[in-house]
Amino acid sequence: MIDLVRNKHGGLIICDEVQTGFGRVGTKFWGHKWQGIKPDIITMAKGIGNGFPIGAVVTRKEISDKVKQVFFNTFGGGHIQCRVGLEVLNTIRKERLDENAEVVGNYLLTELGKLSKKHRIIGDVRGKGLMIAIELVKDKETKEPGKEETNQLMELTRERGLLFGKGGVYGNVLRIQPPLCLSMEDAKYVVQAVDDAVLNIK
């Protein structure tokens, strides 16, 4: 759909793959691939360096050729950053971490989804690969955001050794984005810890 609009009216499609890229969402490697989008420009960081500070912008030659100004960046093209990025790519391929993200991520989505049927405050579980969200609500019918419950769950899971992020417009969504090498055994512990933590929310 987006491609059709661009083709009809012009413009560029820019995909931000800072969080979703490099296998985070599974074997398609990029988030936009799951949407069937053909971007003109892709921005990327985080996953490309596995914690090392590196980012990149990729585009087609006909677009980059139109940039007439000289682009300057203090850290642009640094040899160490480029080497780290290359090694990260090699490791993802060699260890098949994108496949692991898809398999382990599917397990987590399925099992955490079961918890949403068990616990009244889990309103939704969604995601792709190892980029998962648990939305907490006060009431499943009204979908009233469970902000306090989210804060409690973050603390209770932290006590069990898990660090989750928090997001969503109302601050009621737990963000689970573990390393791509997360094992199935680790994933089982995540499910068990979340289940136990929810039972202890007051």
Rank of each mutant, 00 (worst) to 15 (best):
H119V: 15
R160H: 15
K66Y: 02
G77W: 01
F71Q: 03
P179N: 01
L112N: 02
T74I: 08
G76A: 14
G105M: 10
R96S: 09
T150L: 04
I176Q: 04
L89T: 09
T142S: 05
F75I: 10
L130E: 02
I80K: 04
V173A: 05
G167M: 00
G85T: 06
P179R: 02
Q69I: 07
G146T: 00
P145G: 04
I176E: 00
G78W: 05
G146Y: 01
G85L: 06
L163S: 06
E111W: 07
K166R: 05
G113V: 07
R93T: 08
V70Q: 01
I80A: 09
D124A: 12
F72A: 11
E111F: 13
C82S: 15
N151T: 10
L163E: 13
P145I: 02
E141F: 03
D124F: 02
R126D: 13
V137M: 00
Q177E: 14
F164T: 00
G167D: 01
L115W: 13
L130G: 06
R120D: 12
L89G: 15
D98K: 04
P178C: 05
C82N: 11
E95G: 03
K138P: 00
R93S: 08
E155T: 09
R158N: 13
L112I: 04
D139E: 11
M131P: 13
T150M: 03
P145M: 14
V88Y: 06
L174W: 01
Q69P: 01
V169A: 07
L97V: 14
K147S: 05
T91A: 12
P145D: 14
V125E: 00
G171Q: 04
F71L: 13
